[in-house]
Amino acid sequence: MNIVAVCACPTGVAHTYMAKKALEQAAAKLGHHIKVEAQGALGIENEITQEEVNQADIVILAIEVGIAKRERFDGKPTVKIPVQTAVRSPETIIKKIEEKLK
């Protein structure tokens, strides 16, 4: 699968970056391609382009707050999850998406 994801939490310091790391680790382990954008206290990092969105099979939004440039994902299959779910059980989420997209 080709996944794009955005992480954003209220403080924007810890969970945003932990969720990013967790999703990257899980996707690599399960053999998927992923690009994870962090929207935190450092602004937008590793920004996802419209072209990358267009090529993605699924969008994961691990967010607790409103995010910038959400319109990029309009019309794409999107899974919205709490950011702590991405931190705690990233593999479960990706496996569920695998099932759904089969």
Binding site: V13, M18, K20, K21, A41, L42
Partner: peptide, 25 residues
């Protein structure tokens, strides 16, 4: 993690973010 409410030093925030990622390892 203790974060100043204002006059943030971006480098310091970056360090906290790195610590957060390390905790995932």
């Amino acid at each position: 993690l203790l974060v100043p409410g204002s006059n943030e030093n971006q480098m310091h925030i970056r360090i906290l973010a790195q610590v957060a990622q390390l905790i995932m390892e």
